[in-house]
Design a protein around this nucleic acid. Structure first.
Lengths: 341, 341
DNA sequence: CTTCTACTTGAAATCCTTTACAATTGGAAA
DNA sequence: TTTCCAATTGTAAAGGATTTCAAGTAGAAG
């Protein structure tokens, strides 16, 4: 790589001091027009770019932010990350991704990476990650919070006080149940059950709660399901485990990705949707309108989440902003997979 | 945020000099056991983490890498980014994403961001970005290359010498054409044509080339198509523009994402696949096995691309490694959408 | 009890910028 | 011509680590 020029090299060639070059570059007012143009000429000539590490060291800001996610190949998180990246860059910040795997406990070593790099803030959208037992999450994040502001995009984390933006999917599940109930369904199964993660737990809770209120029969399995293939298997197991007369007439699936596998399995079993089985997913992914039949689902505005969470994070540094929780209401997008459109 | 401790604070409390603390932390051998444990006790007590900007300034390394992509919501790029991130983190590097939009020309201002941050290297997987006229790409990337190593994951860029890993999709398209030809197809259309981007242009070239060689009738449209909705429209337009007798009997689609829309349109027009129309996509996305019917496609091992490109990038700094090009051969994955499985 | 060697340790320079403060310059007012 | 003030510019001190080189210590050998 070519030897990089420093501000001193520029200063020397322009016949001024380093301080003056710095002032010109940062648009400081106290610089005469003449020197400013002279300096700028040299800067342009050599294409000088100040070293952001040196600047960051002095200003105690890396102008870099982080995002903690379990995956970016999952379109839900990809959308959050993408929107956050866009917003960060627009404001002159770089965005780094840190992956905290599904089921992995968050460790001090993990967040030490962010602390060493002196990030200016972090977005946490743990999703599956947030195992409740043992629950390290609040402790570890609280420690991280002593170093940088955090904004979370997931159901509020008990024991952690920070700005939090999320969509109330318990409510979403209630909407889904009510919709199916209104169509006459009495036996409904939930695919993707697990008691291990909060974001899924929330959906389950909404599902069971509303099923109870309406006096319907809820069916579910205790498994952590998060891929199409797992959805395919789970559907098979569920239906095989029940006599045909006890089959649910509708399935609510934890997310659209898993629903892909569910739809496939139902098709393979020769069922016609929505006649033989109604299906509702969650997340409204780019592919959800293109399944066969198109999938009824809950809209979660991930772009908006990512963007506004990032905006909050950027503000958190400057203003003495108070943490707050912003809950969004998901909309049921009715397509052919559940009938009743 | 809490006031952060410096190495001097630790040194003072441990009764040693900053140099010694530094040595202990970096595992330097010339430190007595006794001092080492004493220092470590204080480090642990205050949870001291060295400031990576200060270290980076001195060592001329930010331990940070970048990826330039047109999108992370597109599963193709998401997979590359994800694998690259994993590999970078495993080696103690952070990974930042920089988005260069579809159709956007790469500018000096764009890469200035990376230069200012003194990234240790960058992965370029431009995709659609690489407009050929006017072709700024080689110039701008060559300039960037003077500051940091580059590895590209896309067809080789004329005028740019750097390590390059990609899958030969011209060959892939030939395989697709041959497969269809063997099944008796004579009229085949390409959906997603454009002369504006290299990565797509390469596919087109392979398609037309092989069609010619086999003496088949190639049909295509001049449009830049890269979403399911665009695929849906393009299919409609193509078929409406032709008398039914002139219809192609098979469609090759620029990628699986677009193929989602193509499948949907064909279904809406009442066609049964593969009887009335054969379809082949490209990329083998996670959803491609779950379309109706499951989509025949070309396997592009994006994970592997991302991982090994990152490995090359990491090595590029240390060893005096020579740039090389690694071409991979795509495999045709035959599923129900094209018949002949 | 010296002398030498091999470890340990510390002092100080360095990385590159920003910024508070001091110094200089020029022109206006007296 | 002096005096004063404002506008420019420069000096030097951070900022927080790493690393070279020199100094110090302790133990072994004579």
């Amino acid at each position: 790589m070519s030897e990089t020029l420093t501000i001193l090299d520029i200063a020397r060639e322009a016949g001024v001091s380093a301080a003056t070059v710095s002032r010109v570059l940062s648009g400081h007012p106290n610089v005469s027009k003449k020197t400013a143009t002279a300096v700028r000429r040299v800067v342009d000539k050599y294409n000088y770019k100040p070293n952001s590490m040196a600047r960051g060291l002095l200003q105690k800001s890396s102008r870099t932010l982080g995002v903690i996610l379990p995956s970016v190949t999952h379109p839900y998180y990809a959308a959050i990350f993408s929107a956050a990246q866009e917003e960060a860059n627009r404001n002159g910040y770089a965005l780094q991704m840190y992956r905290l795997k599904y089921n992995a406990r968050i460790t001090d070593e993990f967040i030490d990476q962010l602390i060493e790099r002196r990030l200016d803030g972090v977005l946490f959208s743990g999703g599956f990650v947030e195992s409740t037992n043992p629950n390290d999450l609040p402790d570890v994040l609280t420690r991280l919070q002593q170093y940088m502001p955090i904004v979370t995009i997931c159901p509020p984390i008990p024991g952690l006080t920070c700005t939090n933006i999320y969509t109330d999917l318990a409510l979403g599940m209630r909407k889904a149940v009510r919709h199916l109930s209104a169509l006459g369904h009495k036996r409904i199964a939930f695919i993707g059950a697990t008691n291990e993660t909060r974001s899924v737990g929330e959906r389950e809770h909404g599902f069971f709660d509303e099923m109870n209120r309406l006096g319907l029969t809820a069916i579910s399995q205790e498994e952590h399901i998060h891929t199409p293939a797992m959805g395919e298997m789970a559907t098979l197991k569920l239906l095989q485990s029940l006599p045909r007369t006890d089959w649910p007439t509708a399935l609510i699936v934890v997310n659209d990705l898993v629903a892909l596998g569910v739809l496939r399995q139902l098709h393979q079993m020769g069922l016609t949707l929505p006649r033989d089985m109604a299906v509702i997913g969650c997340d409204n992914q780019f592919f959800s309108a293109y399944t066969e039949p198109p999938l009824t689902t809950l809209e979660v505005n991930t772009d908006e989440h990512g963007r506004s969470a990032m905006q909050q994070l950027l503000q958190a540094r400057s203003a003495d902003s108070q943490p707050f929780t912003q809950v969004r209401e998901p909309m049921l997008i009715v397509r052919a997979s559940c009938g009743g459109g």
